[in-house]
């Protein structure tokens, strides 16, 4: 079964390579578009309705609590990635956040660290690879997941394998820790989607071509995150300035 899926993916990849034209940073566009459509279908029929139901049924304070507990575990992941990128003060701050929220914040239910002006950071293994100089590679849309690229996609596996809750779950529920972790991950996915409900409405309004809009926004966003908000100018940006002066001359 796995081999068959692999074969299908391989054929799709080759078909993508064979296509010409379009965006140079998106050689897999035909395949990506197909997956994008599939993800949209999945989102429209399952993911989004579940998230809407979650917002309708679960009261807001409880949703915030759930979000905070998950975000608290995530701070350890962020801390680890800051360590890997040699950002020591940030890593120390992330660890402090985890300690404070786990104790005074009642196991992460309340984000007291933010009140104490310890800012939350945004790091993951894909960004760490980027910081180390690994190029993002071509854009790719992952089934059931969404926008990614040849660097951030595989990095997800590392993030998945190093999830800090795994040892704790093994200890606490030796018999069914896998089920426990999957449960946590499901809730986490619903939490993410619930927080994006308004954004996706905005996206529908703004985008002329949703596929390209999402791709180009994602690519810029990831680049910005890798450089922590200070990305160097791209060669393309210089060209822009020339265009704009041309326009003004006219």
């Amino acid at each position: 079964m796995t081999r068959r899926i692999f074969a299908v993916v391989l054929v799709a990849l080759l078909a993508g390579c064979a296509s010409t034209g379009g965006n140079s940073r998106d050689p897999l566009e035909p395949m990506n578009r197909a997956v994008f459509r599939f993800n949209d279908f999945f989102d429209e029929n399952l993911y989004k309705p579940v998230a809407k139901g979650y917002v309708a049924v679960v009261p807001s304070p409880i949703r915030t609590g759930i979000h905070n507990v998950l975000a608290n575990i995530d701070d350890l992941v962020i801390c680890l990635n800051n360590v890997l990128q040699g950002k020591v003060p940030e890593a120390a701050s992330d660890f402090m956040r985890f300690v404070i929220n786990s104790t005074f914040g009642l196991g992460g239910l309340i984000d007291v660290a933010s009140e104490a002006r310890l800012e939350k950071h945004n790091e993951d293994f894909g960004q760490t690879l980027g910081w180390w100089g690994v190029p993002s590679g071509p854009y790719v849309v992952i089934p059931f997941w969404g926008p990614s690229n040849f660097r951030d996609g595989p990095a997800l596996i590392v993030t998945y394998k190093t999830y800090p809750l795994t040892p704790a779950a093994k200890e606490a529920y030796p018999g069914h820790w896998v089920a426990t972790l999957n449960g946590v991950r499901t809730v986490s996915l619903i939490d993410v989607r619930a927080n994006l409900l308004q954004t996706t409405n905005l996206l529908d309004d703004a985008a002329l071509d949703r596929y390209r809009f999402v791709r180009d926004a994602y690519t810029q966003r990831r680049r910005n995150l890798v450089y922590d908000g200070q990305p160097p100018l791209e060669p393309e940006d210089e060209v822009d300035d020339q265009t704009s002066t041309d326009v003004e001359k006219k």
């Binding site: 002329l208 390209r212 809009f213 180009d216 926004a217 910005n224 990305p231």
Partner: peptide, 11 residues
């Protein structure tokens, strides 16, 4: 980090 102009440009 997402520029409005750049995001529309490719389309």
């Amino acid at each position: 980090g997402v520029s409005l102009v750049t995001t529309y440009r490719d389309t």
